[in-house]
Write a protein that binds this DNA or RNA. Structure first.
Lengths: 212, 212, 212, 212
DNA sequence: CATGAATGAGAGTTCATTCAT
DNA sequence: AATGAATGAACTCTCATTCAT
């Protein structure tokens, strides 16, 4: 008689769905993720996903919203306390790197979305990504105004930063497997710490901005 | 009475399938591409896809093999004639950039595959990508040996190059739409030519490698 | 507007699927039965078959499980009340015969499965068949112990019994058609009652077991 | 330039197709056998099967025709020289047994066909089977006329003979696997020679026909 | 809020068969 | 006589989604 009634806690259930959805979407992609699998993963009835998120796309939107807000919050919090443009830039890159490393679904989802100009979520991706880039762009502008940075192409620099950091994170398993297989030593950074990489990227960007 | 009799030319049919598959895979992703749609796109019976490529994965492998060989050939041909490490590096970056721009499926497919460490094609992606990176890495080493380049982290630099170039290409539509919508001017390079960007990336990487 | 809403009764739906599957599998064989046809036959959506039985093989297993249990139950119920080995043997044969006649899918399915050593369901067929044969074999042994039966080859006798009864049932339509067509009288038992045949088989087996 | 042109020997090709078809039909059944697989098995182009046999059913007919003629010939040859009804019956049973054992596709195909009254080949199966049964029936009649056999039900006796022999052959692998797995000894004749079984069946039938 | 039964469309794949060479 | 390319229908199975309870 007593059926396994679930939590009856709307917010908790929603959160559980989103969390498991993040994992699945980031590993299998949007089309490759099935609602059936997701419902099993989070132990909730399949219909509940539609009850809370209307449809698959709605859930995906919630997922992307979530992770883009997370990374944005993580960066703005750290940056607020920084003074100089130089330090702010360093903070931006290092925070992004360590966040991407500890939340590897971010690079996976971001690269997937960006790889087709956000075929699934054009507008939302656009506004969210825009905010993050605006932050980066502002730092560069401040540096220019302060006379510590050269004139630059912010968009390209931004992509150099997040492109390299994202790829370093997503290809980690690939590179480690390669390291075990490879005869000759091709330096693939298979054992590098994210801190060292973030640091290296930072100094590279600064070298570019400071010029000869 | 007149059935849609097809060309009866194996190589032509295979090529047609691969070409249309490239388009679909790069825009919709692996899971999002349907063999039905593909067969309609290339005007061939669905069964022919399986006749030639055994299954969906087999076709995808053929597609990736194709484009990775293309870009590798494009780069090695141009590089062979270059002399100094510096010029070779410039050639690498500019060739990659212009190829990616004229064959925009390359960045799309590459980013998708790299975004989950090649979930679909682990080994093949690995070997093919490895060859391209080895080329890049060799140039850096030669530069070091010749004393014109500083010591560096080749993997990170490589990802800075292809990360930025790929993202510039794939986000082009997104950025152009943004430019029309945006009130304030955020420099998103929506009108930049790929030559200028490749040139900028090149000089940035050289700045990094040449140091202060 | 009025969609074909179904009963929403799990056990009823499952039963309906199994019942119609029995008919189809027994007439068309495993490979010859299509899930599409089955779904139409039982008025349920095709997906429901997979919802309840996972896949075609799973359904087939359920079907075989069902009918083998049925015949086993039918026989054991009747036999339990019998006293002597002789009567038990008679009960076994006659029950099997009348059951096979009133449930003609049993011989059809059994012969098909046995005709290739259970290519589809090796283990299950094995255990289920084994139980039935063990019953038969036990009766013979008891008869031997009691001194009323001669030593015999139980497996061969068993196959003589179920072989003949099954074939009589499955070839019934064939033999009746033959009777109409045939000029000369070939005694094909086209009008025989199953009771007479079971009786004849019983007395034959007893003749064998009692010896000269 | 020189393509692998095949034998160009019509009868040889046809024979090869039939031989391989026998194997496949007997193991996988009619519906379970694919023309693709068959063409690969016999190394001939798929279209040739249709060139020679019109369609799948036509090939199946040829296959059944072939094996039913084989067994009929094998038996009639041996029987012609026999004198008494008793010896003829013995010859019938033993020849059938040894042929079935050395050509195990016969029992497999026969049981499959008989299990649904020849759904695929009603008429042909009917005439061919009829001939074999007529042979058996004639022997019994002669025995009756000679006063050595009791009155009997030929159809049932016939099915007891071929039912048991066919099942013994087709279930051999099943019974051998069972023997290895089984803890307690259930006499499944897993190691019996066909000669012993044929002999046992013969003496059983004779016991029936000679009566008390 | 939660469940499991139900659905229709479409997925990838295989089929028997035909046609041009 | 023989081949490989082509076809359309059918196959098993999965999908996102809805409905009754």
């Amino acid at each position: 008689m007593t059926k396994k009634i679930h939590k009856r806690d709307a917010t908790a259930s929603k959160k559980s769905i989103v969390q498991h959805a993040i994992t699945l979407f980031s590993t299998r992609g949007y089309a490759g993720t099935s609602m059936d699998e997701l419902s099993k993963a989070c132990g909730l009835n399949k219909a509940m996903i539609f009850y809370y998120f209307k449809n698959k796309k709605g859930l995906y939107e919630a997922v992307m919203e979530e992770i883009l807000q997370e990374i944005y919050k993580a960066i703005t919090q750290k940056i607020s306390s920084s003074k100089s443009a130089e330090v702010q830039l360093e903070t931006f890159i290092k925070t992004y790197g360590s966040f991407a490393c500890s939340h590897p679904y971010l690079p996976a989802l971001l690269l997937k979305e960006l790889s087709d100009s956000g075929a699934v979520l054009p507008e939302q991706l656009f506004t969210s990504m825009r905010k993050l880039f605006a932050l980066f762009s502002d730092i560069l502008k401040r540096g220019e105004d302060e006379g510590v940075f050269q004139k630059s192409m912010p968009m390209v620099l931004y992509f150099m930063v997040i492109g390299s950091l994202n790829l370093i994170v997503t290809t980690k398993p690939l590179r480690q497997k390669a390291a075990n297989l490879d005869d000759i030593a091709l330096e693939t950074c298979s054992e590098c710490e994210i801190e060292d990489i973030s640091h290296y990227v930072t100094s590279n960007i600064l070298a570019i901005l400071k010029g000869a």
